[in-house]
């Protein structure tokens, strides 16, 4: 991954995080409010209720582990993390070990740390 992509990825994780539908929904609610206000409607009620509704839907989705969208997103994220971990480690044995345990990701390797690259634990830290 190039430095530019890593930089963009860092800021994406920082601002938007791992819940893109929630961020897109919030953006759409803000845009709709602006549109209504522009048309002369004082839609002060839309932002708080819309944001809370989005939050409720997101939490309900997360609480249901079998919902298809999250299953797909989780699998994709696990693949991305496995790929990133594979780039970060430098021995064949370590790569082989990670391919069997993509979730554990002992990816915060000395190499990644000493090279100053964003490691998987850094990404986890942002998630906290």
């Amino acid at each position: 991954m190039s430095y530019v992509r890593r930089f963009a990825h860092f800021w994406w994780e920082f601002i938007v995080g791992d819940n893109l539908p929630l961020a897109l929904g919030a953006g759409a609610t803000i845009a709709l409010t602006a549109l209504l206000v522009d048309k002369g409607v004082n839609a002060w009620w839309l932002l708080p209720t819309g944001i809370l509704a989005l939050l409720a839907i997101s939490v309900a989705r997360a609480a249901d582990p079998d919902n298809p969208l999250d299953t797909f997103l989780r699998r994709r994220r696990a693949e991305e993390m496995q790929h990133a971990a594979g780039d970060a480690v430098h021995t064949k044995d370590e790569r082989a070990m990670l391919s069997f345990a993509p979730e554990s990701l002992a990816a915060d390797t000395r190499m990644a740390r000493l090279a100053g690259e964003a490691s998987m634990r850094d990404v986890e830290r942002l998630g906290d």
């Binding site: 995080g17 929630l22 919030a26 953006g27 803000i30 939050l55 997360a62 609480a63 906290d128």
Partner: peptide, 27 residues
């Protein structure tokens, strides 16, 4: 600033709700 705070704050709130509900492990 408002848009950034909504996006950023929702991240904090969403994860805190999941942890408070027991859906996600607490740190």
């Amino acid at each position: 600033v408002g848009t950034l705070l909504v996006l950023f704050g929702l991240q904090w709130l969403y994860k805190a709700i999941l942890r408070a509900a027991g859906v996600k492990a607490k740190r």
